[in-house]
């Protein structure tokens, strides 16, 4: 498929990005570069110095709302994309109304209990929605352990094992690999339609 054709298809789709940290910021940028039509991005956090080891932000954006900073960065790359942002903490009560118009939801939280909350809320309320989850990417090395597993309309990207800890921090290479794998999975789902 030629890039023109890919862009023409992708512009009709809306992707939800749940969290604008390491996974969400990098995944959103990859989708924006490829020409997705519309992004709905949610995060309640601000950019801090410690985020810069993996997240798609710049030093002069420290202190800004992540959703504001990410929108700014994406618009510098591709101003044609419609970006809707929610400066909000997602929960069981608000998630469905925020993401119901999305074709696919990318789960991009850091905490496992939030990942679980999103998946369970979607299974119960929007069972047909495709979900692309990131799970297992801490540390460095072992690139080939990172994979995508499909279970119905739920896709898990990562090694499913490497949990972040003091001694195994999330770092740009592996977090970026999973974020881009999530973006690649989104393209695969949309373009195979």
């Amino acid at each position: 498929m030629r890039f023109e054709e890919i862009k023409n298809k992708l512009k009709n789709y809306t992707i939800g990005i749940a969290g604008a940290g390491g996974l969400g910021s990098n995944c959103a940028v990859a989708l924006a570069r490829t020409g997705i039509g519309r992004l709905i991005i949610c995060d309640f956090d601000i950019v801090t110095e410690s985020n810069l080891n993996r997240q798609y932000y710049f030093k002069n954006q420290v202190g800004l709302k992540k959703v504001t900073a990410l929108k700014e960065n994406i618009q510098k790359i591709n101003p044609d994309i419609e970006i809707i942002t929610y400066d909000i903490k997602l929960n069981e009560a608000n998630l469905v109304s925020i993401f119901k118009t999305c074709d696919i939801i990318v789960e991009a939280f850091d905490l496992a209990e939030m990942k679980k909350m999103l998946i369970e809320t979607c299974i119960e309320n929007m069972p047909d929605k495709s979900l692309v989850i990131g799970s297992g990417m801490a540390g460095f090395g072992n690139s080939n352990s990172i994979k995508t597993i499909k279970n119905g309309n739920i896709y898990i990207c990562g090694d499913e094992m490497s949990e972040v800890s003091e001694d195994s921090p999330p770092l740009a290479p592996r977090v970026g690999m999973v974020a881009n794998m999530q973006a690649n999975t989104v393209l695969e789902i949309l373009l195979k339609h």
């Binding site: 969290g19 991009a108 279970n151 739920i154 499913e160 490497s162 949990e163 972040v164 999330p170 977090v175």
Partner: peptide
């Protein structure tokens, strides 16, 4: 049966 396991990080 589907069992998904989730670990923190992102």
């Amino acid at each position: 049966v589907t069992v998904l396991h989730l670990v923190s990080g992102g």
